[in-house]
Design a binder for these strands. Structure first.
Lengths: 345, 345
DNA sequence: TCAGAATTTGAAATCGCTTTGAATGGCGTT
DNA sequence: AACGCCATTCAAAGCGATTTCAAATTCTGA
């Protein structure tokens, strides 16, 4: 199998007639090495394509040079996650930090995965996605003393670092807008129950309704994953109610596609018979502006969130106190054709 | 930052009153250790949650215990890739192999990323996705002596390991079927030019047409990325031709969504005025059967391909000759409502 | 001119594991 | 009683980097 023996520090040092110490120092920018030697070393390293062996470097420094992402199978590795990932990746690449991605099938496996990561010290930190209200994984990571940043929020005893979007206010505004347009039966197609973001969205939705003295009809609230198909089914079922909902709040663009289909199938017109505002995580391949009719959205780039979270991780690893790492991002409300006045009843 | 010092082999050995050698051997299943000792060691290790330090283990064994995936930014980290990834991941997890995912923005960066991976020996092998006819990355990896498996095919001087789906025959059959239904102007919305799979698909398409003595109209062939929006634009433009195409071959479900939209916008009926067969990579959140009308597809699970490729990688690392690692998967043709007889002209 | 400081380099220890080569002790043979 | 053979165990040498501590060289200033 003769894998070409890669160039080692020792080889490079011999080639230069210097000690490993000096070469290492030269490459790592220590001040005590002569400027001329440093240049000579840098040049040779570059020419010979020397790069320190990652494992050796990690062993010596104690840093893993990688962050971990544990994804729950197909559910989580969908379009949202890939956008998020590429956001994280773009920043991590610039810092020469690797992303270690694992996929697991269950909650138990996920916990086990974190224990493994911790025990084998494969990562310096992890990113936690879609937390629950009181997230067990977060507590475990706390226990394991492995730093992490939350994409979303949770409430465990300790302070944790997080970045979240303002789901509550986003849904409060979207709902209010629909109410302004005269809608009274507004359906909420929300994420799976238990996730903080889903709870926050429902809170916003309820707030808008109760602010006008309206009661919340549980039959108009659906909790499930954000897929086209589920969106279709939930919307289809709800459209059979009488009086039927005149507006939908869709949790994602995928859901919105399904709702759209259900509306069409019921021979209704989106934007006149039924309105919709969807949450848009900004997928490059699914543009709300190019839909027909164009889609009103609550909008926040999940990719940007990823990039920012990557930055936050680096800050934490640099020693920034967790209590100082909190970011709540506002969500844009973009009105387009899919949301119109409620039909006369 | 007081990270809890993880348990080391040394600690475990002392705890047991044994040497590191024996403990290591016991845990790694060497035959020369007493069965009673082995049990004692295994038990203690399990109890104390000992796992070897990954960096140390890698340094000692020379194996990285990870495979690399370099993804080109947003274009590549889309829904296809995430499905593929989770397929790869599910197998790799069972083998305790990590996935190192990097994202890059350009071809140059991608090559640089491979050089880095090779020089720093971070991975034992990589997976190469969507190759071009004569893929430069494959040649580079060959040069760098880092093993890889191709998802797709390419033609460089050497034998390479690959797994591909039979795109040519899939499109040949899909096109033939549309011809059987009386369609004569059939549009092909293909992937970006230069990729082998796109070429293969075009080959199949052309073969079906020429088999009936029909000529290929270049105005009916589009090459671009597989997104909803692009599908929409290409289809929209083509539907303005006179005579207009009566059938579409969409390269992906995303493309199909866009085509669908264009058809509707032109006030045409999918399945009667215009037909469509789309390639379905089997996304759990976008089901051809649940579309309206249901979508005829050429079908092949990209996730399964990922899992299989992971297996192939392990075989290669175990020494299987590259020339023996070739798999061409057949593609299912599933006829549903979106493909019907050509309209009377 | 020479001590002492400053600059620059190097030898060796260390990180936590695997693995080689040697040591120990028990047991059956002769 | 002496010998050789197994079955076990261990001490120590790597793996390829960083880093501590010491040495060699050059500068400075009196």
């Amino acid at each position: 199998m003769g894998r070409k023996a890669a160039m080692r520090l020792k080889d490079l040092a011999e080639h230069l007639g210097l000690s490993q110490t000096t070469v290492s120092r030269a490459l790592n920018g220590y001040p005590e090495v002569n400027e001329a030697t440093r240049r000579r070393v840098a040049e040779a390293a570059n020419l010979l394509g020397y790069r320190p062996n990652a494992s050796a470097l990690r062993l010596a420094t104690g840093r893993a040079g990688a962050i971990g992402l544990v994804l729950r199978g197909a559910d989580e590795l969908g379009p949202h996650m890939s956008e998020f990932l590429s956001g994280v990746g773009s920043y991590m690449a610039s810092q020469e930090i690797d992303m270690l991605v694992s996929t697991v099938a269950s909650h138990q496996e996920e916990l086990a995965a974190y224990r493994r990561l911790a025990a084998s010290q494969k990562v310096d930190a992890v990113i936690l996605h879609s937390p629950t209200i009181s997230d067990e994984r977060a507590e475990l990571l706390m226990d394991l003393k492995i730093p992490f940043v939350l994409h979303g929020r949770t409430d465990i005893g300790h302070p944790v670092a997080w970045l979240d979007i303002d789901n509550t206010s986003a849904l409060e505004r979207a709902t209010s807008h629909l109410l302004d347009l005269g809608h009274r039966r507004i359906a909420l197609l929300n994420g799976v129950k238990g996730r903080t973001f889903a709870q926050d969205r429902e809170t916003g939705y309820r707030a808008a309704l109760t602010a006008r003295g309206l009661t919340v009809d549980p039959a108009l609230i659906g909790n499930s994953a954000f897929t086209d198909e589920i969106g279709f089914r939930m919307a289809q079922a709800m459209l059979e109610q009488r009086p039927r909902p005149t507006a939908f709040l869709a949790g994602s663009m995928m859901t919105a596609l399904g709702v759209f289909r259900a509306i069409r199938q019921a021979d209704l017109q989106l934007g006149s018979d039924v309105s919709m505002i969807a949450h848009d995580d900004v997928f490059p391949y699914l543009n709300a502006d190019n839909m027909y009719p164009t889609m009103s959205t609550t909008r926040s780039s999940i990719r940007q969130a990823g990039t920012r979270i990557a930055e936050l991780i680096m800050q934490i690893l640099a020693g920034k106190p967790l209590a100082d790492v909190h970011e709540l991002w506002p969500v844009e409300l973009v009105l387009r054709e899919s949301s119109g006045p409620a039909p006369k009843s």
